[in-house]
Protein backbone atom coordinates (compact mmCIF):
# COMPACT_ATOMS: atom_id res chain seq x y z
CA UNK A 1 0.00 0.00 0.00
CA UNK A 2 1.23 3.53 -0.76
CA UNK A 3 2.36 5.69 2.15
CA UNK A 4 -0.35 8.24 1.32
CA UNK A 5 -3.14 5.64 1.44
CA UNK A 6 -1.77 4.11 4.62
CA UNK A 7 -1.60 7.54 6.22
CA UNK A 8 -5.21 8.47 5.44
CA UNK A 9 -6.44 5.00 6.52
CA UNK A 10 -4.70 5.39 9.88
CA UNK A 11 -6.07 8.93 10.34
CA UNK A 12 -9.56 7.70 9.55
CA UNK A 13 -9.20 5.12 12.33
CA UNK A 14 -8.06 7.94 14.64
CA UNK A 15 -11.02 10.02 13.52
CA UNK A 16 -9.12 13.13 12.52
CA UNK A 17 -7.74 14.94 9.50
CA UNK A 18 -4.12 15.33 8.45
CA UNK A 19 -1.77 18.19 9.22
CA UNK A 20 0.27 18.87 6.11
CA UNK A 21 3.01 21.45 6.67
CA UNK A 22 5.02 22.82 3.77
CA UNK A 23 8.65 23.72 3.53
CA UNK A 24 10.50 25.34 0.67
CA UNK A 25 13.54 23.21 -0.15
CA UNK A 26 16.90 24.93 0.44
CA UNK A 27 15.27 27.85 2.30
CA UNK A 28 17.44 29.55 3.37
CA UNK A 29 20.07 26.83 2.86
CA UNK A 30 20.23 23.09 2.32
CA UNK A 31 21.26 22.10 5.88
CA UNK A 32 18.58 24.14 7.60
CA UNK A 33 15.78 22.87 5.39
CA UNK A 34 17.05 19.26 5.74
CA UNK A 35 17.01 19.58 9.54
CA UNK A 36 13.52 21.01 9.42
CA UNK A 37 12.29 18.29 7.07
CA UNK A 38 13.77 15.49 9.20
CA UNK A 39 12.17 16.86 12.38
CA UNK A 40 8.71 17.64 10.98
CA UNK A 41 7.10 14.22 11.69
CA UNK A 42 8.16 14.41 15.33
CA UNK A 43 6.54 17.88 15.55
CA UNK A 44 3.27 16.45 14.26
CA UNK A 45 3.37 16.49 10.46
CA UNK A 46 1.24 13.69 9.02
CA UNK A 47 2.24 14.38 5.43
CA UNK A 48 4.93 16.83 4.25
CA UNK A 49 4.78 19.07 1.23
CA UNK A 50 8.19 20.00 -0.10
CA UNK A 51 8.21 23.06 -2.33
CA UNK A 52 10.55 22.99 -5.31
CA UNK A 53 11.88 26.52 -5.89
CA UNK A 54 11.06 28.09 -9.27
CA UNK A 55 12.09 31.44 -10.69
CA UNK A 56 8.53 32.42 -11.66
CA UNK A 57 6.05 31.15 -9.06
CA UNK A 58 2.99 32.86 -10.51
CA UNK A 59 0.49 31.16 -8.17
CA UNK A 60 2.38 32.10 -5.01
CA UNK A 61 2.16 35.10 -2.73
CA UNK A 62 5.11 37.16 -1.48
CA UNK A 63 6.09 34.76 1.36
CA UNK A 64 6.66 31.74 -0.86
CA UNK A 65 8.11 33.90 -3.65
CA UNK A 66 10.81 35.09 -1.27
CA UNK A 67 11.39 31.57 0.07
CA UNK A 68 11.86 30.32 -3.49
CA UNK A 69 14.32 33.11 -4.23
CA UNK A 70 16.32 32.24 -1.11
CA UNK A 71 16.24 28.55 -2.07
CA UNK A 72 17.50 29.26 -5.58
CA UNK A 73 20.21 31.52 -4.23
CA UNK A 74 21.26 28.66 -1.94
CA UNK A 75 21.65 26.42 -5.00
CA UNK A 76 18.36 24.52 -5.08
CA UNK A 77 17.97 22.19 -8.05
CA UNK A 78 15.49 19.41 -8.72
CA UNK A 79 18.23 16.83 -8.16
CA UNK A 80 19.13 18.54 -4.89
CA UNK A 81 15.51 18.40 -3.72
CA UNK A 82 15.32 14.68 -4.53
CA UNK A 83 18.52 14.14 -2.59
CA UNK A 84 16.94 15.87 0.43
CA UNK A 85 14.03 13.43 0.26
CA UNK A 86 16.40 10.46 -0.05
CA UNK A 87 18.22 11.61 3.10
CA UNK A 88 14.92 11.99 4.93
CA UNK A 89 14.00 8.43 3.99
CA UNK A 90 17.09 7.06 5.74
CA UNK A 91 15.38 7.74 9.07
CA UNK A 92 11.70 7.82 8.10
CA UNK A 93 9.90 5.27 5.98
CA UNK A 94 6.28 6.11 6.75
CA UNK A 95 5.61 9.87 6.44
CA UNK A 96 4.39 10.63 2.91
CA UNK A 97 6.23 13.32 0.99
CA UNK A 98 4.60 15.28 -1.79
CA UNK A 99 6.62 17.62 -4.00
CA UNK A 100 4.91 20.85 -5.00
CA UNK A 101 6.19 23.00 -7.81
CA UNK A 102 5.87 24.24 -11.35
CA UNK A 103 6.20 22.28 -14.55
CA UNK A 104 9.25 23.82 -16.21
CA UNK A 105 12.05 22.45 -13.99
CA UNK A 106 10.49 18.95 -14.25
CA UNK A 107 9.99 19.29 -17.99
CA UNK A 108 13.58 20.42 -18.42
CA UNK A 109 14.87 17.52 -16.31
CA UNK A 110 12.86 15.08 -18.44
CA UNK A 111 9.51 13.87 -17.09
CA UNK A 112 10.32 10.15 -17.34
CA UNK A 113 13.72 10.39 -15.70
CA UNK A 114 12.30 12.68 -13.04
CA UNK A 115 9.44 10.32 -12.13
CA UNK A 116 11.82 7.34 -11.90
CA UNK A 117 14.28 9.21 -9.69
CA UNK A 118 11.55 10.80 -7.55
CA UNK A 119 10.09 7.37 -6.79
CA UNK A 120 13.55 5.97 -6.05
CA UNK A 121 14.25 8.89 -3.67
CA UNK A 122 11.09 8.16 -1.70
CA UNK A 123 8.70 10.79 -3.06
CA UNK A 124 5.05 9.71 -2.88
CA UNK A 125 3.18 12.32 -4.85
CA UNK A 126 3.49 15.36 -7.10
CA UNK A 127 1.55 18.60 -7.19
CA UNK A 128 2.32 20.55 -10.35
CA UNK A 129 0.58 23.89 -10.00
CA UNK A 130 0.55 24.89 -13.68
CA UNK A 131 -0.29 21.49 -15.12
CA UNK A 132 -4.08 21.20 -15.51
CA UNK A 133 -5.60 17.77 -16.27
CA UNK A 134 -5.90 18.77 -19.95
CA UNK A 135 -2.10 18.88 -20.26
CA UNK A 136 -1.27 16.16 -17.72
CA UNK A 137 -0.94 13.48 -20.39
CA UNK A 138 2.73 14.37 -20.72
CA UNK A 139 3.50 13.12 -17.22
CA UNK A 140 0.69 10.76 -16.16
CA UNK A 141 2.07 7.59 -17.83
CA UNK A 142 5.32 8.11 -15.93
CA UNK A 143 3.74 8.84 -12.55
CA UNK A 144 1.64 5.70 -12.98
CA UNK A 145 4.59 3.55 -14.03
CA UNK A 146 6.49 4.70 -10.93
CA UNK A 147 3.58 4.48 -8.46
CA UNK A 148 3.60 8.22 -7.79
CA UNK A 149 0.30 9.94 -7.07
CA UNK A 150 -0.29 12.89 -9.40
CA UNK A 151 -2.39 15.06 -7.13
CA UNK A 152 -5.38 16.74 -8.77
CA UNK A 153 -6.01 20.37 -7.84
CA UNK A 154 -9.54 21.73 -7.60
CA UNK A 155 -10.66 25.30 -6.96
CA UNK A 156 -13.77 27.26 -5.97
CA UNK A 157 -14.09 28.14 -9.66
CA UNK A 158 -14.20 24.49 -10.81
CA UNK A 159 -17.81 23.75 -11.92
CA UNK A 160 -19.52 20.50 -10.81
CA UNK A 161 -19.39 18.77 -14.18
CA UNK A 162 -15.70 19.61 -14.53
CA UNK A 163 -15.06 18.30 -10.98
CA UNK A 164 -16.46 14.93 -12.01
CA UNK A 165 -14.38 14.82 -15.17
CA UNK A 166 -11.05 15.81 -13.63
CA UNK A 167 -11.48 13.70 -10.50
CA UNK A 168 -12.05 10.53 -12.52
CA UNK A 169 -8.25 10.28 -12.82
CA UNK A 170 -7.41 11.50 -9.30
CA UNK A 171 -5.11 9.46 -7.11
CA UNK A 172 -3.67 9.84 -3.61
CA UNK A 173 -5.70 12.79 -2.46
CA UNK A 174 -7.42 15.83 -3.93
CA UNK A 175 -5.94 19.25 -3.19
CA UNK A 176 -8.67 21.83 -2.78
CA UNK A 177 -7.34 25.37 -3.37
CA UNK A 178 -9.78 26.89 -0.91
CA UNK A 179 -9.71 30.50 -2.16
CA UNK A 180 -9.54 32.19 -5.54
CA UNK A 181 -6.14 33.74 -5.07
CA UNK A 182 -2.49 33.13 -4.39
CA UNK A 183 -0.85 31.38 -1.45
CA UNK A 184 -0.76 33.06 1.94
CA UNK A 185 -3.47 35.64 1.36
CA UNK A 186 -7.22 35.25 2.08
CA UNK A 187 -8.82 32.49 4.11
CA UNK A 188 -11.97 30.57 3.23
CA UNK A 189 -14.78 30.72 5.78
CA UNK A 190 -16.12 27.60 7.49
CA UNK A 191 -19.31 27.84 5.44
CA UNK A 192 -17.42 28.13 2.17
CA UNK A 193 -15.31 25.07 3.02
CA UNK A 194 -18.35 23.04 4.07
CA UNK A 195 -20.17 23.87 0.86
CA UNK A 196 -17.10 23.04 -1.21
CA UNK A 197 -16.73 19.69 0.54
CA UNK A 198 -20.34 18.82 -0.24
CA UNK A 199 -19.60 19.40 -3.91
CA UNK A 200 -16.32 17.50 -3.78
CA UNK A 201 -17.79 14.52 -1.93
CA UNK A 202 -20.35 14.11 -4.69
CA UNK A 203 -17.51 13.87 -7.21
CA UNK A 204 -14.95 11.66 -5.46
CA UNK A 205 -14.33 9.12 -2.69
CA UNK A 206 -10.63 9.80 -2.20
CA UNK A 207 -9.41 12.10 0.60
CA UNK A 208 -9.63 15.86 0.09
CA UNK A 209 -7.23 18.30 1.72
CA UNK A 210 -7.56 22.09 1.81
CA UNK A 211 -4.78 24.56 1.28
CA UNK A 212 -4.12 28.30 0.59
CA UNK A 213 -4.83 30.79 3.36
CA UNK A 214 -4.76 28.39 6.35
CA UNK A 215 -2.57 30.07 8.97
CA UNK A 216 -3.59 29.67 12.58
CA UNK A 217 -4.08 26.53 14.72
CA UNK A 218 -7.81 27.33 14.84
CA UNK A 219 -8.03 27.57 11.05
CA UNK A 220 -6.08 24.32 10.68
CA UNK A 221 -8.42 22.60 13.16
CA UNK A 222 -11.50 23.82 11.29
CA UNK A 223 -10.15 22.87 7.86
CA UNK A 224 -8.98 19.43 8.98
CA UNK A 225 -12.36 18.74 10.58
CA UNK A 226 -14.36 19.70 7.49
CA UNK A 227 -11.96 18.15 4.98
CA UNK A 228 -9.45 15.31 5.37
CA UNK A 229 -6.44 17.52 5.91
CA UNK A 230 -5.06 21.05 6.15
CA UNK A 231 -2.01 22.35 4.33
CA UNK A 232 -0.15 25.18 6.08
CA UNK A 233 2.68 26.86 4.20
CA UNK A 234 3.18 30.63 4.24
CA UNK A 235 2.50 30.97 7.99
CA UNK A 236 5.31 28.53 8.88
CA UNK A 237 7.73 30.07 6.39
CA UNK A 238 6.92 33.56 7.61
CA UNK A 239 7.52 32.58 11.24
CA UNK A 240 10.85 31.00 10.34
CA UNK A 241 11.92 33.87 8.06
CA UNK A 242 11.41 36.27 10.98
CA UNK A 243 14.33 34.53 12.72
CA UNK A 244 16.75 34.99 9.83
CA UNK A 245 19.66 37.34 10.18
CA UNK A 246 20.40 39.03 6.87
CA UNK A 247 18.74 36.15 5.02
CA UNK A 248 20.77 33.51 6.89
CA UNK A 249 19.38 30.92 9.32
CA UNK A 250 20.00 31.38 13.04
CA UNK A 251 19.79 28.94 15.97
CA UNK A 252 16.17 29.99 16.40
CA UNK A 253 15.08 29.19 12.83
CA UNK A 254 14.35 25.44 12.92
CA UNK A 255 12.91 25.45 16.49
CA UNK A 256 10.60 28.34 15.56
CA UNK A 257 9.22 26.50 12.54
CA UNK A 258 8.84 23.27 14.53
CA UNK A 259 7.14 25.14 17.39
CA UNK A 260 4.64 26.51 14.91
CA UNK A 261 4.01 23.03 13.50
CA UNK A 262 3.54 21.60 17.02
CA UNK A 263 0.86 24.14 17.82
CA UNK A 264 -0.91 23.37 14.54
CA UNK A 265 -0.63 19.67 15.26
CA UNK A 266 -2.14 19.98 18.74
CA UNK A 267 -5.07 21.90 17.32
CA UNK A 268 -5.67 19.31 14.60
CA UNK A 269 -5.45 16.44 17.11
CA UNK A 270 -7.97 18.05 19.48
CA UNK A 271 -10.48 18.76 16.73
Amino acid sequence: MSRIKACFDALKAEGRGALIPYLEAFDPDRDTSQKLLNAMPEAGADIIEVGVPFSDPSADGPTIQLAAQRGLKAGATLAGVLDMVAQFRRTNDHTPIVLMGYLNPIDHYGVERFCQEAARSGVDGLIVVDLPPEEAGIIRPHTKANALDLITLTAPTTPDERLKAILADASGFVYYVSITGITGTNTATEDQLTQAMTRLRRATDIPVVAGFGIRTPEQARTASRITDGAVVASAIIKAMAATFDDGQATDASVPTALGHISRLSKAVRNA
Partner: peptide
Protein backbone atom coordinates in the same frame (compact mmCIF):
# COMPACT_ATOMS: atom_id res chain seq x y z
CA UNK B 1 1.21 26.52 -26.97
CA UNK B 2 -1.40 24.83 -24.80
CA UNK B 3 -2.98 25.91 -21.53
CA UNK B 4 -0.60 25.57 -18.59
CA UNK B 5 -2.46 27.43 -15.87
CA UNK B 6 -3.56 26.78 -12.30
CA UNK B 7 -6.93 25.07 -11.90
CA UNK B 8 -8.45 28.29 -10.52
CA UNK B 9 -7.97 29.87 -13.95
CA UNK B 10 -8.75 26.84 -16.08
CA UNK B 11 -12.57 27.20 -16.09
CA UNK B 12 -12.08 30.84 -17.00
Amino acid sequence: GGRFVAETLMPL
